[in-house]
Design a protein around this nucleic acid. Structure first.
Length: 550
RNA sequence: GCCCCUGUAGCUCAGGGGAUAGAGCAGCGGUUUCCUAAACCGUUGGUCGGAAGUUCGAUUCUUCCCAGGGGCGCCA
């Protein structure tokens, strides 16, 4: 918010001086504090169009800008940077706005109510959610929360692949485990089947409920029955894992339901009408190469069954029909080959493929005692999302998952996440919040805490550390819009760590609640109280708790 | 062979067309009659994977090369 104010000051001054400013220039926080609080490259950017040397131009601008009392010092440096040092009163004015905003601080209408559908996880309902799913959950949910805060109208959806042949395999695996339970020799468990222990648990549960009745059904009825039972159980299991992670979906869309509604035939006919399908080898193909894919794709297999692609495309079309103008899919790293074909379908059907945005989360490697934990789904050797939550807790898990940008491979160190000490950034940030709460408690006990904070206290906030904290607080609204625009939730953790460090330093350097001066104590309490509120906003966006004491 | 991601301090990673490239941890040395030492202060450590190009200026953009990870089904 301060950057915008300075930028506006600059524009007004440029206009007054008759300096043209067609080219965009920026106002930034310089990386070296000695240069000032803010810095602009405008003189260097505008030098060419005004036919002046950057430094000379800067001098003219500075002379005009200096008339404004908001700045303590404005100077020209280096090749033509204009550096601003702000007057404490400027910071204090900004702080008062932040303080008054409370929990609504940084809420904006930036997104202008744009309807955005964020689809993530969409795991097969054939087993427990794994750690890559957990990463997607943390990433997608945090992105959702930030977009909501910044004025978009986002929705979270989970697409259930409950109609493919993996569900048949699941039912067969369950039947084998059931037979085993009844003492039948089943020999070696098939390679293709699901080996995880959860299938055994499902068999036990089904057996306890229904006993041998299952085997009195016809083969066909039994398979349907087993399928339905397993799907319901596993979906419920997945839903509970997500609930423990504080991830609530706005919608669960079933592929099976979609298929029963006839949308598959619809999509096939749309594609045929668009004249981009053909028959070959008894199968129906989509000529996706016409629209940039590297090979054509099968829509209907030679046995008459449909490929995964068709209902998934149908699902995406329903998103558009429901009024979403931006579709964000968060995928695992193994799906990138899928993008050209779905984008091709969008183009073939006359939609702008730019409305479909696909974010790839790179893989997660688990480390334990410095060793990489090998995982295999087939062999049932996976670390589940529940295991992870049990092991390190929701807060640490969510924090570590959003601390990396999507495109980075994530090394998850189980031991580090478990550590409740200074090696662990989650605790560093939570501790900063808890410390402020502790101070507030003491202030109340010592009767220093005021009913309301008076504006007159502001002038007491003039220490460099205090002004830096205010500056950091003022960065949040812009940060949130950047996170929303670039879909980069990981920036939240950097921000929180920087703010926490400032709090710890301030805490160590200054006595907050002091018997010497009540007004000074209250001024500092006002600052920390507001910092606490801002931290709580950020924790909430990350889905992490803000503890009052640790 | 083709496609995607990555390469920045001992480790895990931020950053980003500009002024002296950052953080946490690890290492070394300090701080507690005082609001939580899960903290703070000081310090060691980098030819930003390599080469060329664009630019007044490249660690950042482009191309090529090297290294690591992943993907290339009438699976989902």
């Amino acid at each position: 918010m301060i950057k915008e104010i300075i930028h506006a000051h600059l524009v007004t001054s440029l206009d007054k001086l008759g300096i043209s400013h067609a080219k965009e220039f920026s106002v930034e926080v310089p990386n070296i504090t000695e240069y000032g609080d803010y810095s602009s490259n405008c003189a260097m950017i505008l030098a060419k169009e005004n036919k002046k040397a950057p430094k000379a131009l800067a001098e003219i601008i500075v002379k005009e800008i200096k008339k404004n009392k908001d700045y303590k010092k404005v100077s020209v440096a280096g090749p033509g940077f204009i550096n601003f040092q702000l007057a404490p009163a400027f910071f204090q004015r900004i702080f008062w706005e932040i303080h008054k905003a409370g929990a609504d601080y940084a809420t904006s209408d930036f997104g202008q109510g744009e309807k955005v559908l964020i689809e993530f996880i969409s795991a097969n309902p054939t087993g427990p959610l794994n750690i890559v799913n957990a990463r997607a959950a943390a990433f997608g949910d945090t992105l959702y929360r930030v977009m909501q805060k910044t004025g978009y109208k986002p929705a979270r959806e989970f697409y259930i692949n409950d109609a493919g042949n993996q569900v048949d395999i699941l039912a067969e695996s369950l039947e084998l485990r059931l037979r085993e339970l009844h003492g039948e020799k089943i020999g070696e468990f098939p390679y293709e089947a699901y080996h995880g222990d959860y299938v055994k648990h499902l068999a036990q549960k089904l057996n306890a409920n229904e006993g041998v009745r299952v085997f009195m059904m016809t083969e066909k009825d039994r398979m349907e029955h087993l399928k339905e039972f397993a799907l319901n159980e596993i979906l419920e299991m997945q839903r509970l894992s997500l609930e423990r992670f504080d991830v609530i979906f706005d919608g669960w869309v079933s592929e099976k339901t979609l298929r029963s509604e006839g949308v598959v035939e619809e999509v096939l006919s749309y594609l045929t009408e668009a004249d981009c399908t053909y028959e070959k080898d008894d199968a129906i193909w989509f000529a996706s190469t016409k629209y940039g894919d590297d090979k054509d794709r099968v829509l209907m297999k030679s046995d008459g069954s449909i490929t995964y692609f068709v209902p998934d495309l149908a699902y995406h079309l329903t998103k558009i029909q429901r009024g979403f103008s931006t579709l964000i899919d968060i995928f695992g790293p193994d799906h990138h080959g899928y993008v050209p074909r779905i984008k091709a379908a969008f183009k073939a059907l006359g939609y702008d493929d730019k409305m479909l945005e696909i974010i790839f989360l790179q893989q997660v490697n688990l480390f334990e005692s410095g060793e990489r934990v090998k995982m295999s789904k087939r062999a049932g050797k996976i670390v589940t999302m529940d295991d992870l939550i049990n092991e390190v807790g929701k807060d640490a898990a969510r924090y570590f998952f959003i601390a990396r940008k999507a495109s980075a491979h994530l090394n998850f160190d189980l031991e580090l996440a478990l550590k409740q000490n200074n090696e662990n950034p989650v605790y560093y940030c939570q501790y900063a919040h808890a410390r402020i709460c502790s101070i507030i408690k003491k202030a109340k006990k010592d009767k220093v805490w005021p009913k309301t904070f008076k504006k007159e206290l502001l002038v007491k906030l003039n220490k460099p550390e205090e002004l830096s904290i205010i500056q950091k607080l003022s960065d949040l609204p812009e940060l949130l819009t950047l996170i929303a625009i670039y879909r980069e939730p990981h920036r939240l953790t950097t921000y929180l760590e920087e703010l926490s460090a400032m709090v710890h330093k301030y805490y160590a350097r200054y006595q907050i609640v002091s018997s010497k001066s009540k007004t000074l104590s209250q001024a500092r309490l006002m600052l920390l109280y507001t910092v606490k509120n801002v931290m709580a906003i950020v924790f909430e966006l990350m889905g992490i708790s803000a503890p009052e004491k640790m």
